[in-house]
Design a protein around this nucleic acid. Structure first.
Lengths: 201, 201
DNA sequence: GAACAATCCGGAACAGTGTTCCGTTTGCCA
DNA sequence: TGGCAAACGGAACACTGTTCCGGATTGTTC
């Protein structure tokens, strides 16, 4: 015996029904609050939306970053895993990189406040920052290395730096006079290394 | 210089001596607090440093932005006015633009938190944002237009956008793994337009 | 089905911001 | 010197995030 209701993974000793219910409700409420007020939506608002007390939020998600991660985990995973496919399907590594960055930008600009939060020096967001880095830096590095190996881009830029730069450029996207996408496009263009030896003609 | 209340317009009936003294003290205290804790230094800290009450700060500088502007006005002016000189002295408009951007970056990265504050959607910083735009957008536009007219850069980028992008890239400068200067350099490089029609010779 | 213990919940309470307000002090001028 | 408008100080307010614990809820066991 020895196994106390361990189902191969024993991931969770099984939570109480109301706890699981509340967690789901909370995720929905948070997602809704995030589209309305951005990721900085006051804790009390989210709690009210979900019809629970603030204590319940902190029990399920000790830090705000945990909540954000839980809400967006699927999309981040999808982005991280899209890298290899793009590299295989695109003509050149640089094209694949550009497309991947586009995916990343798509994700960031549709969640207002996310880019800001990622770069915020607020200690509460450190976990969020770490999560993004863990998942996306390797994916980006893969593409970056391929492009660098092909001699298409300058080789002195790290994946971390690029992601950070792109993330920064996405701050304030949504404002009428600032086109974050174009700025990212310019940045990616600036990455290119123009080898004059093998130029046209 | 040294005319704190330049009453060439006699708009102010002359302030009381202690008021003028406190204003100067406050500027010093704020400047000191800014280098220590960034532009987000708590109001109470600045007040304590200056040995005054918080009310005194708000009387002299209704919003935090007013305080920041007062502290950094000279440097911003200098940056704004450096444009024409650079344009005259540099070989090409693009070189002048790059140098000017460098000046701007210098200013931003040495004041930690300034870049963040500029892009913050906090209503209190709107005046600061407006001030920066008023002074620097025209200066940048001048250089940008010259470079565009010379066909050196793509013509579809506005001064506002460029400044905003550069400002954004400077967020988080000072961190070990992120070189804001290099990112800005890449962005400026991406601006270039490689005219194949009018090539050399 | 009833008692019971572990779990979970709600929201009051705390701590740290910015901002306002008003009784008191201070400098200036007649 | 006397008076008063200007300026001051800091308590008080509003709004954050975060912690804590008495009490309700759930699942289990007899």
């Amino acid at each position: 015996m020895a196994d106390i209701d361990s189902e191969s993974g024993r991931s969770t000793p099984r939570k109480r029904a109301d706890a699981r219910r509340n967690e789901a409700t909370l995720l929905d409420a948070a997602a809704a609050a995030f589209v309305t007020s951005g990721v900085d939506a006051p804790v009390r608002d989210i709690a009210a939306r979900a019809g629970v007390g603030v204590g319940t939020i902190y029990r399920h998600f000790p830090t705000r970053a945990d909540l954000i991660v839980a809400v967006y985990r699927h999309q981040v995973e999808a982005c991280a895993e899209a890298g290899p496919a793009l590299l295989a399907d695109s003509g050149t590594p640089h094209a694949a990189l550009a497309q991947w960055i586009d995916l990343f930008v798509d994700f960031l600009v549709t969640k207002h406040g996310l880019a800001e939060a990622l770069q915020s020096d607020n200690a509460a967001f450190e976990t969020l920052h770490a999560y993004f880095l863990d998942r996306l830096v390797p994916a980006c590095a893969h593409l970056l290395d391929a492009a660098a190996a092909a001699g298409e881009i300058r080789p002195d830029v790290t994946a971390f730096e690029l992601l950070r730069g792109v993330g920064n450029l996405c701050i304030g996207a949504g404002e009428p006079r600032y086109d974050a996408r174009r700025m990212v496009e310019i940045l990616v263009a600036g990455l290119r290394q123009h080898h004059q030896g093998t130029g046209p003609r």
